[in-house]
Design a protein around this nucleic acid. Structure first.
Lengths: 161, 161
DNA sequence: CAGTATCCTACGTGATACTG
DNA sequence: CAGTATCACGTAGGATACTG
């Protein structure tokens, strides 16, 4: 009667959740994306217990999302994103945009993602067609890929209100 | 000594996690995006207990992400996405893309998102500049917005490996 | 500072029986 | 079919003391 694992599900979303689906994990990653690197910093930023933080960091290292290494200037270890971890950024940004829009702060945006070179804010996250047009949710359709044999393909969002 | 709630955090990502951060919630939403609408369908698709499913669906309805209504053709209730729910799509797609890339199935993609009109697959999710260029993770920077008063703005991903 | 090591709680979860 | 209602269980989570 253990908790069911998502690992066995043949679903890319479930696979992702199996890795970053625990409560604190995405908040830790947010901090890493914001430039925090040390155990100490995470602990104070999040107010999370040491044992949980340890466990989550180890998990992320084992999954190849973070790399643990000795910092250049000090003897203290630090955690930095791998390429695999950097690839999580669209997820983080999408969630941040959604929270900003649908659970807004009265003073406005809490964080703004800008292009490093120009300082200009990015567009809100959206699906984009091959030739670069922004697509709304109902312009899309999910189709079963080669790894999903005989699954009936429902029409994703036909006639939503 | 309760579990800490994320609600009070002044962070858009935490706000989002407070709503959709529980284990089953995103999988339920995936099913809704894939066209499932009825209690029965979710139950069989996910293999989740009725009580959990009930609780999650109620939560999503209360948050304004799903709308519960009587189906046109039958007396059975059905759950459909609201506009607020449809806005979650970039999150779902981002997570699906990540899972497909970093925990791949040997046969290839499990699901492909295509443009409804053309049938052509969409681009992989990415941040996009105001003038439409795709931006990589390290091209971006997070800046504190108006609602984040005196928070020190670390440099997000300076010199990651 | 960066963890380990304990101990404890309660929430998320699961199985199943029951109901309109 | 679409839930409610119980009951039981384990894991995430939390607090704190301790260590190299």
């Amino acid at each position: 009667m253990k908790h069911k694992s998502f690992d066995h599900m043949n679903c890319s979303l479930a696979q992702t959740l199996a890795v970053i689906g625990e409560r604190w994990t995405l908040l830790i990653l947010r901090d890493v994306f914001c430039g925090l690197r040390r155990f100490n910093q995470f602990e104070h930023s999040l107010g999370v217990s040491k044992n949980i933080l340890t466990s989550r960091l180890n998990r992320l290292v084992n999954e190849g999302i973070l790399q643990k290494r000795a910092a250049a200037d000090s003897a203290h270890p630090e955690y930095v994103l791998t390429a695999k971890g950097l690839d999580l950024q669209p997820i983080l940004i999408s969630m941040t945009h959604w929270g900003d829009k649908h659970r807004p702060h009265e003073d406005g945006a809490r964080v703004v993602f800008v292009e490093r070179a120009s300082g200009q804010p990015i567009r809100s996250m959206s699906a984009v067609s091959e030739d670069g047009r922004m697509l709304r949710a109902r312009d899309l359709k999910a189709r079963a890929g080669p790894a999903l044999a005989a699954s009936q393909s429902h029409d994703p969002i036909a006639e939503t209100p």
